[in-house]
Design a protein around this nucleic acid. Structure first.
Lengths: 362, 362
DNA sequence: GGGGAGTGGGAATGCGCTTTCCCAGATCAG
DNA sequence: CTGATCTGGGAAAGCGCATTCCCACTCCCC
């Protein structure tokens, strides 16, 4: 038994499919009250559910929003997804989820799949990569997005524009001031501290990571500090842990080195919270304590991690808002005309949040 | 410019749409090599992307999997979602996400929306509620699911069957042995301990919470312990925190009560990890320490929370596998006949994991 | 009272694709 | 060499719905 159709409802109600369509699914023309009731009752008794595919086909719009993330189980993306979901609900749309692990090639596939489903808009979260091995995929991704936009799709990408993408109609970027905020964090951390800084960053070419690194270095410079050494590792907890082990060894070596004057304490900046947690775990596993033996700061202010101790200094990013803003940016505003040309890109602001993990201790 | 269509491709290749369809989108009949190449090239040059809506309409199957969760930002659901996503990819399908906050009414809406989109299957995660105020909504949800199944949809629900749902064709339940595992946890915790037990549970009627509570009590009984007192609160971190504050006050009162013999230490069981973390935070905020002043255990073994200190005793649940299993259960197996009648429901097993938060100290 | 505007319903077309059915040509056995 | 069986391609009928016309009325006003 297949689901009942509009035609069946119409027949049961003794009207034409056209009329049934008009009463059941909004239309400019409102049929008479008695007929409407009859149709509605017929629909009810048949348990009629309109076929969204057919509707979409007929009016070429699917009511779908595509969301692309690296990994939905990563709390960073989960938070953004929540915002996207909330905004989608506002627009009475559903969200289609695709996880890509961050590979531009897979992102391209996801965009194509969304395009095939005629998603009304696409939100891309997750750092862009400009590594040379991703170059070709990025080009294809940009081409795919461009085609999607030309066909009337709207896309919003969080952070950076897709590498190589031309700013087409309907292409929005929700800028995240990673660099500025990392700079501000560096300035605050550097104040009155003279230890060395070390940055635990993601692989080179990950734009978000690179921005934060660059910003942090600039901040250090502004504060009159020497640039920090940079440790490259995976952009996740495991990477943070690994880097943490290295640093722990170094710290312990320094401490036991003894001879010289007490080595100033290391201040670690991990380019995201999850990595910072990993690094902290490694230090702890090696018997070091934070902030006694080293201080550490992250980035993102992941909600689930706020109960972690010592409380992590970080930069608060309104992740849920970011998801919401990105999604809203893709919403077709009815009154929009080309007159006002400039579409205002939504603006995101973060906040340096110093906590226990970078406090000066005895 | 709308996306190009199969007809356009066919015209450019100088063949009929039927042939173009056969070569571009799999079919039993394989057109000749030369023709196929011509079509493929035409498609390529036009940047043809098949319209999944039209395809779905024509062969009545959408390649969509609907996933219903309470909150995608909750790491519990995020982990399950990852598994669902992975399994969906295996099946070359996409996942449609709906978040409901756990309200059966909204779950019903989500099911209807999935049905409208002709999702091939639906996975429902998140505790069922059998509170009286949800009764009507549950009935409607069950009816909606039933209809969906009768129309050929497949559904899998994690944990408990939807309250009131009749086991229709295509209705699967991925059972989670919450009760047994909670019992096992209780037994292990009770061994050689004589303090009081307190359970921080969700609102009455939340099946997952109730199962874990019941199992824990049974375990205590088996170990010869008196039943634990039960604190009801919200099924999230805030609820745990709130309950934690209450308990902290009680512990401090007991400690300063002085007169009698030293009050045995309280052992807290929060029915999920997130609540346990909330409770721990509250105790800590009140100046109490774990496991010195009280011990605490959770449930789920959320990955992101494993770096929390003191390490949380809990019950490990293979969340990602659960999502995967549920999704696979809904996959239409080609060789399936009614002959073997019994479909084997996938089985999930967890593991009691004792860590520092419940260690005996000084 | 007649003609024009307005109203409410139905017939028909098309959205883009799959699939059945049909047909022309090729292949092969007798 | 003829009739039977394949083979590979095209024509056409939907899938379920929205929407544009079109038509039969009613209502109003001059």
């Amino acid at each position: 038994m297949a689901a009942s159709t509009l035609t069946e409802v119409a027949r049961l109600a003794g009207v034409s499919p056209a009329t049934a369509s008009r009463v059941l699914n909004g239309s400019a023309r409102k049929p008479g009250k008695d007929i409407a009731d009859r149709v509605r009752q017929a629909a009810e008794s048949l348990g009629y559910i309109p076929n969204a595919q057919a509707q979409g086909l007929a009016k070429s719009s699917s009511g779908l929003i595509g969301l692309i993330v690296h990994d939905i189980a990563d709390p960073y993306f989960a938070a953004i997804a929540r915002g996207v979901q909330a905004a989608a609900r506002e627009q009475r749309k559903m969200v289609l989820l695709a996880t890509t692990g961050g590979a531009p090639g897979e992102e391209r596939e996801a965009v194509a799949a969304f395009a095939a489903r005629r998603a009304d808009s696409i939100v891309i979260a997750g750092s862009r990569s400009c590594r040379t091995e991703d170059q070709d995929d990025n080009t294809e991704l940009a081409a795919e997005l461009d085609r999607y936009c030309r066909n009337g799709g709207r896309v919003a990408v969080v952070g950076h524009p897709v590498v190589g993408a031309t700013a087409a109609e309907g292409y929005h970027v929700v800028a995240v001031p990673n660099q500025e905020l990392a700079g501000a964090l560096a300035v605050e951390l550097a104040a009155g501290r003279d230890g060395d800084f070390v940055i635990i960053g993601g692989p080179e070419g990950l734009l978000t990571s690179d921005d934060r690194i660059r910003g942090f270095q600039e901040g250090l410079a502004r504060a009159g500090h020497a640039p920090a050494e940079i440790l490259r590792t995976a952009f996740n907890r495991a990477g943070g842990y690994e880097a943490g082990l290295q640093l722990a060894a170094r710290i312990k070596a320094g401490a036991s080195g003894g001879g010289e004057a007490a080595v100033p304490k290391l201040c670690i900046f991990a380019v995201n919270d999850v990595m910072a947690i990993g690094a902290s775990a490694a230090l702890r596993a090696e018997g070091l304590r934070i902030p006694r033996d080293a201080t550490i700061a992250g980035f993102d202010d992941i909600e689930t991690l706020r109960d972690f101790r010592p409380e992590l200094s970080t930069v608060r990013l309104p992740l849920e808002d970011i998801g919401r803003l990105a999604t809203r940016a893709t919403a077709r505003v009815s009154g929009e005309s080309d007159a006002d040309g400039e579409e205002e890109q939504p603006t995101v602001s973060g906040e340096v949040t110093l906590r226990r993990s970078t406090e000066a201790v005895g």
